[in-house]
Amino acid sequence: MTDRPIRVLVAKPGLDGHDRGAKVVARALRDAGFEVIYTGLRQTPQQIVSAAIQEDVDLVGLSCLSGAHNTLFPKIKQLLVDEGAEDVVVFGGGIIPDDDATLLGEKGIEAVFGPGTDTRDIVTFIEKHPRFNGRFE
């Protein structure tokens, strides 16, 4: 038996066409030894959740620059819960004001990373998450 690597879906909900940030994060997570499933631009919440379920990911990382994070991120979390996948950790990034980040936190988005975040902080957030029970410390 071998422990499988952490699996993360990196997804871009919303209509903006910029995925540079998402790709930088994807590469950093790969280099940290994670399996990253990347699904491309302009994904609906339904598409994202459908992929997360099929891929049996541990986490979903959402990147949104269109400003629609307040509706899209909680919608995705809610759909995951509806599918019985409430254990999947959701985090996000993009241009997100502090007030919004607090609100998102209340709606189950466990971390929000702003522009200029060091990707190592994202890796640390994931490895230290209680879901992995100290497996990576």
Partner: peptide
């Protein structure tokens, strides 16, 4: 790293 970017779904 043993990690991967799996992009076929795109």
């Amino acid at each position: 790293s043993g990690g991967a970017i799996l992009g076929d779904r795109i």
